[in-house]
Design a binder for these strands. Sequence first.
DNA 1: TAAACTGATGTAAACGTTTTCACTGCGGTT
DNA 2: AACCGCAGTGAAAACGTTTACATCAGTTTA
Lengths: 365, 365
Amino acid sequence: MGRAVTLGDVSRHVGLSVATVSRVLSGSPRVRQATRDQVLRAADELGYSANLSARALKTQRTDMLGVVFPDINNEFYRELLTGINDEAHAAGRHLMVEFGPGPRWQSLRPQDYLFGGRIDALILLNLGLPMDFLRDLAGRGTPLVLMDRPAPGVPAATVRLENVAGADAAMSHLLEHGYRRIAVLRGPGDSYDANERWRGCERALRRFGVELDHNLIWEAGFYEAYAYTATQRWLADHDAPEAILALNDAMAIGALHALREHGLSVPQDVALVGFDDVDCAKHLGLTTVHCPIRQMGQAAARAALNLMATDEPAAFYREEVLDTHLIVRTSCGCVPDDNPISQRPPINAVSRLEKKHARPVRPEV
Amino acid sequence: MGRAVTLGDVSRHVGLSVATVSRVLSGSPRVRQATRDQVLRAADELGYSANLSARALKTQRTDMLGVVFPDINNEFYRELLTGINDEAHAAGRHLMVEFGPGPRWQSLRPQDYLFGGRIDALILLNLGLPMDFLRDLAGRGTPLVLMDRPAPGVPAATVRLENVAGADAAMSHLLEHGYRRIAVLRGPGDSYDANERWRGCERALRRFGVELDHNLIWEAGFYEAYAYTATQRWLADHDAPEAILALNDAMAIGALHALREHGLSVPQDVALVGFDDVDCAKHLGLTTVHCPIRQMGQAAARAALNLMATDEPAAFYREEVLDTHLIVRTSCGCVPDDNPISQRPPINAVSRLEKKHARPVRPEV
DNA sequence: TAAACTGATGTAAACGTTTTCACTGCGGTT
DNA sequence: AACCGCAGTGAAAACGTTTACATCAGTTTA
């Protein structure tokens, strides 16, 4: 139950000054070998472990990277986090993560994002913060890395996805299938990502000479539930489109549920394509745009570490853009040859109508 | 770029002592209103934010909860984390999370789990740590909460799931379906969870008078890949069982993929039941045992906060067990009436044989 | 042999807080 | 008039480190 063992305890135990003990423990060369051994033995014996608050206070370094996310219940962010964590660990750094509740973060001042000085660098996920806010934040001496949204004029490194090309590829694929009445489930207009992805769609449509039907652009929050209602509402009094391009996978899943409830099959009745390639997409057979999310996290962490190590002003405006590409599975109507797992429907359950009142039976093997 | 604003800066700015400024900022009543206003204005103007390392050093409190996980790429743990986070936030605390790489943590000493004194309490997920290790850890003055595994004799609060009853329910359900040749995909023998869940299976089998076939007990790591190979290997030279009970959802998904590759449908050819009720289970229509994972996280955080506030020795041995229950979807062969979304297969893609060489066509709406 | 260097250690200041204690006026009791 | 209490404030110590500087013994060098 006692309080933690300090340097003082160790020094008293071996009859040396705290300075010497500190030197041993931080690997300074200016110590006799015998002394070193003696100190290490004592430290081990007493179960010493450095007080990192004290160290941080003195050295002004914490070996921590701060990460702020809107939400952890989102596979995209979690995968990103894994990437950041991997890279941070490899460099002997640890993470200080703060995930949502998003709105709360919006009401904070720049300095509140700095974890009270407990971090050496900050990685931010697009939280919809205004540019001058970011500029203020970036000017406070803690290196800043932004993900997903470029911030011109802000001295912060940026890492983001090639959203335009990805969306273009997805839309082009549907157009090559021959579909023309294609609904687009796009994210909110104030999201940079959402706008970029939509730009990709537009580009493909223009290239194919398809004129766009504004009724088929469904704007919704980037979450399953919103997409579900949006699709639901449309289907209530319109014919289903030939295809739906959802600009993230969560929305694709929402649309899928709505389609099912209207008795529509994917891809026979309506083709469906997503964006992100979250884990579940593989199991569902969802054709989607693969994003190297984990690598993006790693890149962000590397950028942060790099910023901590350099004074080079150019580094503070570096921008890294990661490639995306389409993964063809079954939901678009293709039956690809190169991905055996997704060639079949996930669970071939009997339909409700056929078996509603049937008793469970032992199936033949 | 400058260094952060300190109390000293603020005090100099207003011509008062740091003591007074500190008092204002920590809400002490012994300050004149005029002074208070003046200080707050100055602090705001200068963008002051307290150095938490210094505060922690002085007060010996950090308002941080430490959490150690084997792995973040696991929906079970992530959901748990969300619960912990919610509860911690509600109490004005923050989290310091360390996830994997598991094996690295195994090689650390007890004091290395304490985040260098940067946490006020520690929540541990079963990392396979030996009892005397836990006892040492618990004796170091930082309140300890263990999840998933009771640790008799260790002064730590425990929160875990009712695994036995859950597994019993799942197995019973399959037995009520009439299945008798039921394979069990169980977790590793050194996992407490795995053993508990297996005990539940045994109990149900015994109650139904079914004698167990040791060939049908497949032991594998709690991950998709292991379950996939285990199932794969069995199907290579045996008849498929009538049903598979996977003792976590990741394993169920692994088994599902293996079954598909052997051309077997779920549930027509083989029934499948999982355990955990991860998010994806809903989309897949997987019948599984629902675990209140988030609530478990909340309970753990509450236990930690409680331990920090009390000296009551009994609290340090408190054990909380959360209920589980079966969620019936389609994968077991039932077609439940109460869950419209899961009554249909996730994506009704055409089978490979039918359409392999077909050109994409515009489907009729 | 004195001066200069070297290697090992100790001393003490500093990092930014919080908090105990002491001090100063000042109004109200005896 | 001497006393007390009290509200408001400041001085200073402490938390556990790291590190520049001082010390000191034992070399080496001139």
